[in-house]
């Protein structure tokens, strides 16, 4: 049995249409202290796709996103957004951080959080006008949270908070959406709402990348998958890449065969 190795262990992979890819990561290595969390990772997100970033805990999924977005400083490597460095393309991306990274006791209302997504329009001193409120309410409507507009965010449930976060991202009117564990700790209704919004975005031609933790929904929600465990294991369409062999390599053979069976994997 030959071990299929991911073709991109090294540095810059050969790309077609390099200018058009929403996100290209090259040779990214991030370490905390002496321990690399992400090692020499290349990633290419295809335009208009819904990609899931999958891997065990501590595999570097969130770190990879954060390094690509310039939130943490990598040891090596870089990222290009639509073929250019991030700083020139910020208006085309929207980032939804992990829900736990924010202090939800902060004194602000749901509508205020969504309006944060309109920062680019409002600028430093711009007044919030009716048009902005309408836009924000429309975004809340897409996630089904219009009734909560005046609510203090600390009074929301986990699922509701996640929807507010997504709503803020929608307000940014980006072309590339990056979400860190959008389905973690949310109720079933919220999960349905979120995936319907994300699919709507994909249908509009936008690109969605999400760090995802639930293997059982990968096939249903995403069309491409990126498997990582400190380094890249595999990348490609779900049908070809989300295989038991790749999952074994990602999870170190720790997935029970029963779990794998349930996952309805592609053959091979």
């Amino acid at each position: 049995m030959s071990v299929g190795l991911a073709t991109n262990l090294g540095v810059a992979p050969v790309m077609q249409d390099a200018g058009a890819s929403p996100l290209v990561v090259r040779g990214m290595t991030v370490s905390y202290g002496q321990k690399p969390v992400v090692f020499s990772v290349d990633m290419e997100i295809k335009n208009g796709s819904m990609t899931a970033i999958i891997g065990p805990n501590g595999a570097g999924k969130s770190t990879l996103l954060k390094a690509a977005l310039g939130i943490v400083k990598p040891l090596a490597g870089d990222a290009l957004v639509f073929g250019q460095p991030l700083r020139n393309q910020r208006s085309r991306i929207a980032y939804v951080p992990q829900r736990a990274s924010v202090d939800w006791d902060f004194p602000t209302r749901v509508i205020d959080v969504v309006l944060m997504g309109l920062y680019r329009e409002l600028g430093l001193l711009g007044r919030v006008r009716k048009g902005h409120i309408q836009k924000a309410m429309a975004c809340l409507d897409r996630v089904g949270m219009t009734d909560f507009a005046d609510r203090q965010i600390g009074q929301l449930s986990g699922g509701q908070q996640q929807r507010v976060f997504l709503s803020r991202a929608l307000a940014q009117e980006a072309e590339l959406y990056l979400l860190d564990e959008p389905f973690a700790g949310v109720d079933a209704a919220t999960e349905k709402a979120i995936i319907s919004v994300l699919k709507g975005l994909r249908d509009e031609g936008k690109t969605v990348v999400a760090v995802h933790h639930d293997l059982s929904t990968v096939g249903e929600y995403f069309d491409r998958v990126f498997l990582i465990n400190t380094n890249k294991i595999a990348e490609g369409p779900v049908k070809e890449t989300f295989t038991s062999e790749n999952l074994d390599r990602t999870y170190g053979g720790r997935l029970a065969t029963g779990q794998l069976d349930q996952l309805n994997l592609a053959a091979g």
Binding site: L69, I71, R90, P97, V102, D103, F106, Y119, L124, R168
Partner: peptide
């Protein structure tokens, strides 16, 4: 007054603020 929005954004959600530039 001038930096209100910056202060609120960076206090509430630092990584989001970073991605806004």
């Amino acid at each position: 007054w001038l930096f209100w929005r910056l202060l609120v954004l960076s206090t509430f959600d630092d990584s989001f603020a970073l991605t806004l530039g």
